[in-house]
Every structure is written in structure tokens, then in C-alpha cells.
Simulated scan of single mutants.
Amino acid sequence: MRTVKVGTRQSALALTQTGQVIEQLQQASDKYGIECRFELKKIVTRGDQILDVTLSKVGGKGLFVKEIEQALLDGEIDMAVHSMKDMPWERQPGLAIGATPKRVDPRDCLVTRGGIPLAELPQGARVGTSSLRRSSQLLAYRPDLSVEWIRGNIDSRIRKLETEGFDAVVLAAAGLHRMGWEERISDYVSPDICIPAVAQGALGIECRSDDPFILDLLGRINDGHSELAVKAERQLLGRLNGGCQIPIGAYAVIRQEGGSGSAVTLEMTAVVGSPDGRLLLKEWGQGTDPIALGNALADRLLEQGADRIIAELRG
């Protein structure tokens, strides 16, 4: 029986979603007669240590995965559970995404004092977020809002509604769903208002590319539709050379006519915006090839002037 060492960040959300993945893997191994047991290893990342500045000011690329990927390469762990939106576009040589389990709700959501929805927040309401993507799109929708940066785990950010006087905080709905905290959600933000982050709501299970046992095991919990949607979104991110310091969003959905096994079509909306929300560039497209779709939408955004926004922010 093989002991499979699973690496994860040590936040409550990371531990919860890793536990959920281990449960899926245990069920799959029992079903298919794969003899293994799982051992959890907590790893502190640089992103967990830097809490006094916004992610955009410290670069963002690999902040929550670098140390975990090094543990994989060093053989200290056999797989790692990541929030896919935290993963940089560039792949580390020798590593692979072995599975994308079924994606959960990719939308952003608001937790507000009194359960007030976004449209009814008072003029000048203080809204906390650490995301330039969120602040850009929210300010485009409600220029009167006072959007301020806020860091920490989801529980500490929610507490700041009281401790620091915020009227609302913006979070990924997926995190609250995974924690079983749906009742705390005051309002879901429609993608028509705020396009989610690339791969938001999806997990990426990473492993060494030369470990056939782990690759076979992870393949048992892969969700093909989620994998296709995430692949299209991440291809757009890579084409734009994006990261946390650029307000970029992408949201792909699968359309499948007919029953299981019939052809699928991807539909994707993408956005690049200025941090103040005064300029939002949006594109929509559809296709069957996620790589081609991601590239096509990225190129059309660049033709609209996304390259100038990106260059200015990098500068």
C-alpha cells in the first residue's frame, strides 16, 4: 500500500478543500481497487506570510504555490491541492496538473452588514477587496463606491465588516460554499457586472509528471468540462501575460446539445480594465478548441488596447 503525501497551504479553506479532494480520491481508490492511504502535509507559502500589502504590489505570480511546488520537486510530497486561480501560467518543468475536479460556483459574492445587496449599498459605501479585477469592475458599475484593499483569510475579512467598519467585502463564492458558509452570502455578483478571475472556483491537483501511479489516481477524479473551461481561461491569461497586478477576468461555460458524448461548445467572456474602472475592454467568443478560443479573445482584447493597460500597470 502506497502512502500518498498531499501538500496544502494551512489556511482553514485550503485544509477544507484538500480534505474534500482526499475524500474523493479515497472513494475512487476504493472503487477501483487502488491500494493507498493519504497523509497531509501543511506548507507555508510566501503569500501567506505577506499580509500587509496588496497582492498586486508584490507581483502575485506563484505567491501561493512556489514553496509547495518545490516540495513536489524535492519528493517531500506526491501531490498538491491548489486553488487554480492562484496558479501562475508558467508550468514548472517536471510538474503537471493531474486533475481538475468539478468546478464550483465561479462567481464573486458580497458579504455585507445587514445583508444588503450590491445595488442597494449606500452612496460611498466602503467595500473591501484585495483584487484589482474586482475593484475595476465594481467601480465601473458603481463609481460612487469607496473600494479599499483588504487581506487575510475569508473569516478574518468577514470580521473586518465590524472591526474596521467596512460596509461590504467581496469574496469568491466558491470559498464560502466549500466552507459551508453559504448563509453568510448577502449577494452574488452577476458575471454581467463582474467577470470572475481566471479559473475561479476550480481546483488544480498538481503532481510530478513522471509519477504514473499518481497521474492514474488523479485521472479518476478529473472533470472534463471543468478542465476545458479552465484551459480556455488560462490560455487567455497566458497570452496576455497576466497576473494579480493586472485587472483581467475570464469566464468560460460549456454548452452541450444532446446527451453525454455529444459535441461541446465553449462560450467565454473576458475583460481587461483600468484599476479605476473608467476603461473596461470586453470580448465574447465561442469555439470547440479551448486553446484557440483563449488566444482569439486575448488577441481581440490586445487589438482594443489591452496591451497599453497592461504595459502601464507593469511600468
Rank of each mutant, 00 (worst) to 15 (best):
P212M: 05
A202E: 07
C207Y: 01
E206I: 12
F213R: 04
A173R: 02
V198R: 04
A173M: 06
P191L: 02
D211L: 02
D167T: 12
G204Y: 00
G204H: 03
D167C: 13
A199D: 14
V189A: 10
A199L: 09
I193G: 12
D211P: 02
A199R: 08
D187K: 00
E182V: 14
D155K: 14
E182A: 14
V198W: 01
A172R: 01
V198H: 07
E182T: 14
G180N: 11
D187T: 00
G175R: 06
A199K: 09
A172Y: 04
A168H: 03
E162F: 11
G201D: 13
Q200D: 11
S186A: 07
D187F: 01
S156E: 15
D192H: 05
D167F: 12
V169A: 00
D187P: 01
Q200V: 05
S190D: 07
I185A: 05
P212W: 07
P191N: 10
D155N: 13
G201W: 12
S186Q: 04
A202R: 05
A168E: 03
W181Q: 09
A173H: 03
L176Q: 05
R157D: 08
D187H: 04
F213P: 00
A197M: 15
G175P: 06
V170D: 00
E164D: 15
P196I: 06
G201E: 12
V198Q: 05
D192A: 06
A174N: 02
V169E: 00
A173E: 06
A173G: 05
I158A: 08
S209L: 07
R208G: 00
I193D: 12
E164I: 10
R159G: 09
G152E: 14
S186P: 02
F213C: 02
A197G: 15
T163R: 05
I195N: 11
I158G: 06
I193V: 15
R184G: 04
N153S: 11
H177R: 13
W181P: 02
F166M: 14
S156G: 12
N153P: 06
S190P: 01
W181V: 03
A168N: 04
A172I: 06
T163F: 06
A202T: 10
